[in-house]
Design a protein around this nucleic acid. Structure first.
Lengths: 297, 297
DNA sequence: ATCCAGCATCAGCAATACTGATGCTCATGG
DNA sequence: CCATGAGCATCAGTATTGCTGATGCTGGAT
């Protein structure tokens, strides 16, 4: 079979596990089968995709990976999309959101939805951007709320989300989070360009990813020595307060954090926005919540 | 096999041909095999995808199509991407571009490239946006030049082009093409909103697609009764001159057309832009042309 | 030099994916 | 109303494919 999705899945798994045998175990195959999958792919593409000992992707393998992951995700999305068309679970409401998207307004809307439909089984999952998009694509979540920074007219840059409907549900000023004793902390507003050379924390799943700031500022700056992994906004604020680096977030969310000064950014024109993503087919409660969120904006 | 790409290819082909037997012939299968492919897909997804007699996609089938086409395109793109990595044909330079992207500057750059490398076999293909992107993805072209309208900071909206590198190579005012005797023809400039209710020609492959105007103007207007299929800009200008409807194009390209008045649009802020798209791996002549185009801007 | 963890290879078997023949069904025309 | 035929479904048979389990091989560690 030419470029079988199963083979691609195997390939991705081998890369992730850095081992043929481990990938085999994870996929429920024998090591032999995995070896044959990789050999078939390499024969098909007429190029080695993996080095052995240690197992790592070659240049071609890395190129293939860049295609394989979105490809497999979209395959799952297609299946989920059609499954939803057949059977919409009406008693469930699963929400996936990034930390900055879970605002009081969202929480209130959810509470109201549960009051109106008491038998509704609701769930909220806070996770990173990619995971939230993936949840909405595969049907693990009915709705995804994703926050980020962009120019006022631009949509948020969300890869692989092409088959999801997207709506802005909230827009507010973007703020830099500074330690309260930072020299710039007293300013009423700041220009992003003046901060490009500062020391930043990249917390792509807890705050606004630096990549989005770079894109919005058309800048190569915003270097970082510290990467913050995880979705806990509070932990990040502690780091910022301690002077470990700067971060960017919605102004209201950052307003009253202890030890933190949140200063709005006025230049370039950039806002913090929450977008609602969902598949085209929605269950009744999900559609109602989506409607409520859109109205509330 | 679960959601085999071959099955998806068969499905797409059946939809395109509106016939099992015709699809079979096109794919080199027997009709029986096609029937089994479709049956397997329908069994897998547990839903009918096609009506028979006449053969047409169901709702679920249409949903699947929306995923299947980009999926198959990306599969081809992955293969082409890796093939390029192995073997870059150095004596070839294939350019795919939309009509509005083939400017004198591009032509001059191409002439210069051929002067510098006389043995170079060059080709230019003028086609629609989707076809140009597809050519760059599958390796049918080394470079793609695509024009369109967008806000100055926004990239052009190009679906499925995620794995291609994109650079703006030219930006110029966007103009409305009016018949020379149109009441607004004498104006020095126009606002797009004032034209939303006008009668437009949608020529998505010859001029700026109305969808891009709608997106840039955040408007639902720009209705059209006339769709112009094809990539011939001249033919479109004849229609506009005859009063069949309005179209949008780059101001310089439209400047001296007979019977046409080209009036720049000043509101909202919107420009006509040409973007260069190419895969990450380029042959030497392709890289040089790309570099020349980027420098010239 | 030896060991061994881990990938490659091979033979054999089970599942699959075709083909070609045939059956069935709907639309059409007399 | 029936006869006809175009076109999809189904079935049996066969070639191919894709697994498993056993064994071979190789490079790094001791």
């Amino acid at each position: 079979m030419l470029m079988d999705p199963q083979q691609l899945r195997t390939f991705v798994s081998v890369v992730d596990h850095r081992s043929f045998s481990a990938a085999a175990q994870a996929l429920g195959y024998t090591q032999s089968a995995v070896s044959q999958h990789i050999a078939a792919l390499e024969a098909d593409l007429e190029t080695p995709l993996l080095t052995r000992r240690p197992v790592a992707p070659t240049e071609a393998g890395r190129r293939l990976l860049e295609h394989a992951r979105p490809l497999l995700l979209r395959l799952d999305a297609a299946r989920a999309d059609i499954a939803r068309l057949r059977q919409v679970r009406p008693g469930r409401l699963a929400l996936a959101c990034t930390p900055g998207a879970l605002t009081p307004a969202v929480a209130h809307a959810l509470v109201r939805a549960r009051t109106e439909a008491p038998r509704l089984v609701a769930s909220v999952r806070v996770c990173g951007r990619a995971a939230a998009v993936q949840a909405a694509l595969t049907g693990a979540a009915d709705l995804a709320l994703i926050d980020g920074a962009a120019a006022p007219t631009d949509p948020l840059p969300l890869p692989d989300a092409a088959s999801l409907a997207a709506f802005p549900v909230r827009e507010e000023p973007l703020a830099v989070l500074l330690p309260a004793d930072h020299p710039l902390a007293g300013r009423p507003a700041l220009r992003l360009a003046d901060l490009a050379a500062a020391r930043w924390i990249d917390a792509p799943d807890a705050a606004v990813p630096l990549a989005q700031l770079r894109a919005a500022a058309h800048s190569d700056g915003f270097g970082h020595q510290l990467t913050y992994t995880g979705t806990d906004f509070h932990g990040l604020s502690v780091l910022v307060a301690a002077g470990a680096g700067l971060a960017a977030a919605a102004l209201p969310a950052a307003a009253d954090l202890p030890g933190i000064a949140a200063v709005p950014i006025i230049e370039p024109r950039i806002t913090h926005r929450v977008e609602l993503l969902h598949p085209r087919t929605l269950s009744a409660p999900a559609a109602e919540l989506a409607e409520a969120l859109r109205r509330a904006r």
